[in-house]
């Protein structure tokens, strides 16, 4: 097996690790910042994967644009979370939301 093929395989494996690891962090991170970091890692993994699969430059630019858009929206939501809840710890935010949501009154 040539060195090129090995490098190609390693790149794909690294991209899959990044995509799956990033996605796991995005869904289960302990705070909003870590979750955004997970999304960025996941999208970076996709970018590496696309490059390894020989995608064209327009596709790579589109992937970078998508990553930038998610990063921008994520960070703006992070700021609003900090302003509204006074913190970005997701379990604490979920607890506050549970308290905020009124229980169903009995008719």
């Amino acid at each position: 097996m040539s060195a090129g093929l090995i490098a190609h395989g390693l790149l794909l494996a690294a991209s899959l690790v990044l995509v799956f690891g990033g996605a796991a962090t995005a869904f289960a991170g302990a705070n909003a910042l870590k979750r955004i970091g997970g999304v960025i890692a996941s999208l970076t993994g996709a970018l590496v994967g696309l490059a390894a699969l020989g995608a064209g430059s327009s596709v790579l630019i589109a992937a970078v644009a998508i990553a930038f858009a998610y990063c921008a929206v994520g960070v703006s939501l992070l700021v609003r979370l900090q302003e509204s809840y006074g913190g970005i710890e997701t379990p604490a935010i979920d607890c506050v939301d549970l308290v905020d949501e009124p229980a169903e009154p009995r008719a």
Binding site: S15, L16, V19, G22, A23, A26, F27, R35, I36, G38, V39, I40, S42, L43, G45, A46, L47, G49, L50, A63, I66, Y70, V73, G74, L77
Partner: peptide, 14 residues
């Protein structure tokens, strides 16, 4: 929504 969509976008790109 943003976190789920971001992770989803990575899978869709791949």
């Amino acid at each position: 929504m943003t976190m789920a969509g971001g992770a989803g976008a990575a899978f869709m790109l791949l």
